[in-house]
């Protein structure tokens, strides 16, 4: 049960390559891996799509950090090379924590647990919010949906079925 994912918003002043997509200034994408979609694996913008199509969605917890160009390069590398999904420790919370931790400072690193699960990430994100910055922490933060859904790497335009 549950889900975990990443959003990235471009504040560069011009377009940016994020994962395998080109994103306009001021626009966002989400990335996450899914095991209950056809096909399974890495999707772009599936979270906003799921919300828009009325797939059940609860309130998330989330926290943010800035990305420099060199951080984005690391994040992009991780997004484009982790496109598969597996139930045990290759699931949505594995992917989200891997991408986040690839650039996070030590005190910002999340822990999805021995068996990676979204519920463990919820606790970890709350803890970072308390320890590092409540101002960067949010509950029920809006899920961006500025672009349609894409699957895999290189990204192929298609819609998931849940």
């Amino acid at each position: 049960a549950g889900h975990a994912w990443i959003s990235i918003t471009n504040y560069n002043g011009s377009s940016l390559k994020i994962g395998g997509l080109t994103v306009d200034d001021g626009k966002s994408i989400t990335v996450g891996t899914w095991g209950n979609t056809d096909p399974k694996g890495l999707w772009y913008n599936a979270e906003g799509y799921a919300q828009s199509t009325g797939v059940y969605w609860g309130d998330s917890v989330s926290i943010q950090r800035p990305l420099r160009q060199q951080d984005l390069a690391v994040v992009n590398q991780n997004i484009t090379t982790h496109t598969s999904w597996g139930l045990v420790n290759n699931n949505c919370s594995t992917f989200a924590s891997l991408v986040w931790n690839s650039v996070a400072t030590e005190d910002e690193k999340v822990d999805a647990g021995m068996i990676n699960l979204p519920g463990n990430l919820v606790s970890s994100i709350k803890e970072i919010g308390a320890n590092v910055s409540w101002s960067l922490y949010a509950e029920g933060y809006r899920v961006p949906f500025d672009y349609p859904t894409y699957y895999g790497n290189p990204p192929i335009r298609k819609n998931p079925t849940f």
Binding site: R65, L121, V122
Partner: peptide, 12 residues
Amino acid sequence: MSVAVMRIYALG
């Protein structure tokens, strides 16, 4: 200088 903001979300 930052060019983007990343957010990690979890629910469940």
